[in-house]
């Protein structure tokens, strides 16, 4: 079992370290490869990788990640088609689209999927989220400067409440083969143990959730609280 954590040296933000931490608690026997931004990703030169993860970056560091990965976008697409599991959370999702646009710049991205990102650094958007992937309730929260506008059919989560790809879209994120890309923070894998269970069992059916009872208890309580019709899904500053 081999797990690659991509560019964590650029500093994952917004709790995304929790995705790594919980995943490694579930997959204690996994060989973990931390690839820094000056190195060639393991998945580029090797086809025996089970899962590649990348989390949220600052806007400046996101540029570095785009530049580094641009050289490998063909092999990245190939690995996706080979059913390697890829998980992108937070604004690392943006890298997979066509471009990121703000008031001053238009930054070309990898162009693997048919969406683009509009960013406004003067407006932080904070939302709770509830939706459905297959038969799994997905919960989480979003905190971002950007919205994405997608024409891509590779949708991930159907929105029930909260913010989707943008203020109108009823879908959130990208799902293609075993690539899952979502703006949901949370951290996503901790807040959604049933999804995490699905992922780790894709690697090996014998894999089990770490602290299964405790994490399911926390998940069920959260779902119950999020079903409260009075709950305001837009988040205010803390």
């Amino acid at each position: 079992m081999k797990i690659e954590i991509l560019y964590s040296d650029l500093g994952y933000y917004y709790g995304d370290n929790g995705n790594v931490s919980y995943l490694l608690n579930c997959l204690k026997d996994a060989q973990v490869i931390y690839t820094d931004n000056t190195s060639i990703p393991y998945f580029v030169q090797n086809d025996d990788i089970d899962l590649v993860y990348m989390g949220s970056l600052s806007e400046n560091k996101q540029l570095i990640a785009i530049e580094r990965l641009s050289k490998y976008k063909d092999i990245l697409k190939q690995r996706i088609n080979e059913n390697v599991i890829f998980l992108f959370t937070g604004n690392s999702l943006e890298i997979l689209g066509k471009y990121i646009e703000d008031e001053n710049n238009k930054i070309d991205c990898l162009g693997l999927y048919d969406f683009y990102t509009k960013r406004n650094l003067n407006s932080r958007i904070n939302y709770l989220f509830k939706g459905k992937y297959e038969d799994i309730d997905i919960v989480g929260n979003k905190s971002q400067y950007s919205l994405i506008y997608s024409n891509d059919n590779n949708t991930f989560i159907q929105v029930d409440k909260g913010l989707g790809n943008n203020l109108e879209d009823k879908y959130e994120g990208i799902h293609d083969h075993n690539l899952f890309a979502t703006y949901l923070l949370g951290p996503f894998l901790v807040l959604n143990p049933l999804f995490t269970q699905k992922i780790i069992k894709m690697i090996n059916p014998n894999n089990e959730l770490a602290y299964k009872k405790e994490i399911i208890d926390a998940y069920e309580l959260r779902i119950k609280q999020m079903n409260n019709p009075k709950l305001d899904y837009s988040l205010h500053e803390h």
Binding site: Y13, N141, S143, G186, Q225, D232, L235, H238
Partner: peptide, 17 residues
Amino acid sequence: DEIPDESAIETISWIWD
């Protein structure tokens, strides 16, 4: 916890950092 009641659900991203 900052939010002591049911008025909102506090996000827990920070505890994982």
